[in-house]
Write a protein that binds this DNA or RNA. Sequence first.
RNA 1: GGGCCGUUAGCUCAACUGGUAGAGCACCUGAUUCUUAAUCAGGGGGCUGCAGGUUCGAGUCCUGCACGGCCCA
Length: 505
Amino acid sequence: MKVLEELRKQRVQEIEELRRAGVEPYPYKFDKTHSTADIKRLFDEKLGAGEILEEEKVSTAGRVMSIRDHGKSAFFHIKDQEGRLQIYIRKNAVGNEKYQLFKKYVNVGDIVGVKGFPFKSKTGELTIFVEDFQILSKAVRPLPEKWHGLKDKEIIYRQRYVDMIANDESLERFKLRYKVIRLMREFLNERGFVEVETPTLVYVTGGAEARPFVTHLNVFDIDMYLRIATELYLKRYIVGGFEKVYEIGKVFRNEGISYKHSPEFTSMELYWAYADYNDIMELTEDLISFIVKEIFGTTKVIYQGTEIDFSKPFRRVRMRDFILEKLGVDIVEDSDEKMLSVLKKQGVDVPIKSRGHLINKLWDLVEDQVVQPTFLLDHPVDISPLAKRHREDPRLTERFELIVFGREIANAFSELNDPVDQYQRFLEQVKLREAGDEEAHMMDKDFVRALEYGMPPTGGLGIGIDRLVMFLTDSPTIRDVIAFPLVNPKSLEEEIEYEEEVEEK
RNA sequence: GGGCCGUUAGCUCAACUGGUAGAGCACCUGAUUCUUAAUCAGGGGGCUGCAGGUUCGAGUCCUGCACGGCCCA
């Protein structure tokens, strides 16, 4: 700690020195005309090694990532949102005063602005020859090691900004995440879907099986919940007359953290009036293959060493058939006792012995066997309280989940729009709740009332954006695609206390 | 919640069966006008996560706690 403390004091002292010399280390604005990518795009092909383009003036800025000082000149690299670029500063070009300013006061980690022209070094690297430069922000803390980057997972997750500075692939990963979201919007807007919003604070939760976060609303003195899904409000839009809606937003589930679960994550849900789950299936294939192709130029990605092909059509397999094939048990015809005995043989403990839980546990046993993008079809009614009964078998529903690498990426149904059936399904859920299943649905009477006014036949879809992005960025855990994941705040508090002690000294 | 592994300088990592805690990067001083993990010479920097215990002696062995990672629930 002492080392860091001394280094920070040294930097703070330098900042005071700069101010005394009339140099503001935190100026207000810099006129950045070119990003590092602009410069590469404009000049990389035009220049051969050793060539210069003195009349092409550019102004760029970024964080200093490395410095190679040669006495009366120096090379350094800056990093901006688009990448890294080499800069060359020479005493006889910027004048003694500016050069001394650079040499004495610019460190790795500082943010600087440079004006000059492009050239290519002897070794062929595109470089900016500095005619003028300015400190834009002095860093007080040192950067992690330039060669090995930042590896400490704790710092990576707790101080993502440091991770993004030190590890270029981290910044790129989040850029890709937001490109996925942008492409998703483009695709849906293009097809006439309207982006809408629904409440985050809700009186009753629904739309998923999950324990909610509880909070308190002072004005009515009632407990409220953070939404666990956007489904039930989006369907109210359909009742109200919207025909194609979607929402991209955070949902909250008060459950464990794992490589594929985060208590706070981002979903995209859409609802399409007059469509059924077959239409939604096609839409899902189109949407995902479009995104993958736009990003990579191909539908194939490598995830953790396995090639995954997102080209359409995706494989379709009935949940009933798949479990029957793998485990020899029929989740529609066989008794609860039969299913329980299969589970026991596999050493699976079932705390709540409802038929729905038994089916879910059976699926858990075999889900890993689905690797390539697959639509798992026609789930039993017991595990699908919001889906319409299958037109060919009322014990099943018209539902699919998109499974990739054993993970659920999307969930969709022909939406249940029969208010009487929906009410009965809620009653079943309430029974489970009373039996101790905290993840079962709550009775949502207003939602039933909405259905009583009439909802057109509707297809709906939910996609877990974080999980999708994991596949596209080859991320082993969901925390890698959430910029600021949930961390235990305890040690963070200690760090802040230490900071306060320093300030007092 | 359970099991296993980890925590050493700002960062990345060493330190044999217990015997004076080291290197590289970063930082400071000096040299250096095409370097790119620049180079060369010199310098400062450690409550070995925290608290106990065993021992002549603990980074190293034992116990507890904190935080993290992986696996399981």
